[in-house]
Amino acid sequence: MTLRQAAFWAGFAALLGVSVWTVAPDPARLAAGLPRLLGWLAGSWPPDFSGAGDIARRAGETVGIATLGTLCAALLAFPLALLATRPLSPFLALYQPTRGVLDGLRGTDGFVFALLFVAAVGLGPFAGMLGVALHSAGSLAKLWSESMETADPRPAEAITAVGATRMQVALFALIPQTMPQNLSHLLYVWEFNIRASTVLGLVGAGGLGQELKNAVDLLDFNRVLAILIVIIALTLAADRISATLRRHLA
């Protein structure tokens, strides 16, 4: 084993030890809590779908948050992706700072952004949409810039040789070449946002999470089960739609 490998495994062992010490996993507590959880699950049957209109409205909010959030994210991500693509960035001094901005957006969960926007614009799905948009913009721009940086360089080199500008290289070489892949990334992010938007209501940002929080606060587990069934169905539908569209783009 080399010194570098030994240092890696020592660091991994230290990280694992700190994680165990911090989290303090307790199998005895889990064993004691499982019967209580099973009792709640048994008591939640049958699911309570009364007031289905409220659940449907919240489901619509969830889809709206994810869809508009993803669209706004794409509009934000496009210029950021150009700045974060080395062959296209008009000023190389902006390349690393833009990458840092993308890491910051991706590293801050949409849940956190939604919480901040709830404080800024008030309760409701608009705050959730803004939270989803900011987080997703970082993810999309990162994916798009990497696909353009790893694209076949020959078309870009050919039009650069005849005097094309960086923007012309982007519009006529890299973007057309990577369009199917980038649209696939967009659909994947939308699918992820459907799942993420179901819990934004826990901070007052609308969607099914809001209905779920209300049911949990009232200890209405029959209602909780009904909402969870709708969340699972919505997530599966988004997954199937996204997968089908991605196959057509491949």
Rank of each mutant, 00 (worst) to 15 (best):
5 Q>K: 10
11 G>F: 01
13 A>W: 11
13 A>V: 13
19 S>A: 15
20 V>G: 00
21 W>Y: 14
22 T>V: 14
28 A>K: 13
28 A>P: 07
31 A>L: 15
40 W>H: 08
40 W>T: 12
43 G>E: 11
44 S>P: 02
48 D>V: 00
52 A>F: 15
53 G>M: 10
54 D>T: 15
59 A>F: 07
62 T>H: 02
64 G>P: 03
70 T>D: 08
73 A>E: 09
73 A>T: 10
85 T>F: 09
87 P>L: 00
87 P>G: 03
91 F>G: 06
92 L>M: 09
98 T>P: 03
100 G>H: 01
104 G>M: 14
108 T>P: 11
108 T>A: 02
112 V>Q: 05
115 L>K: 08
119 A>H: 02
125 P>S: 13
127 A>N: 05
130 L>D: 02
140 L>I: 04
140 L>F: 02
141 A>S: 08
145 S>A: 15
148 M>I: 01
150 T>L: 09
153 P>M: 03
155 P>F: 01
156 A>W: 04
159 I>H: 04
170 A>M: 07
172 F>R: 14
174 L>E: 13
174 L>F: 06
175 I>N: 01
175 I>C: 06
180 P>Y: 00
181 Q>W: 10
183 L>G: 03
183 L>V: 11
186 L>D: 04
190 W>C: 06
193 N>R: 11
195 R>L: 09
199 V>G: 02
201 G>K: 05
203 V>K: 02
205 A>G: 11
207 G>A: 05
209 G>K: 14
213 K>L: 12
217 D>I: 12
217 D>T: 14
219 L>C: 00
225 L>T: 14
227 I>W: 08
228 L>E: 00
234 L>K: 09
240 R>T: 13
244 T>K: 04
246 R>A: 06
246 R>F: 05
249 L>F: 01
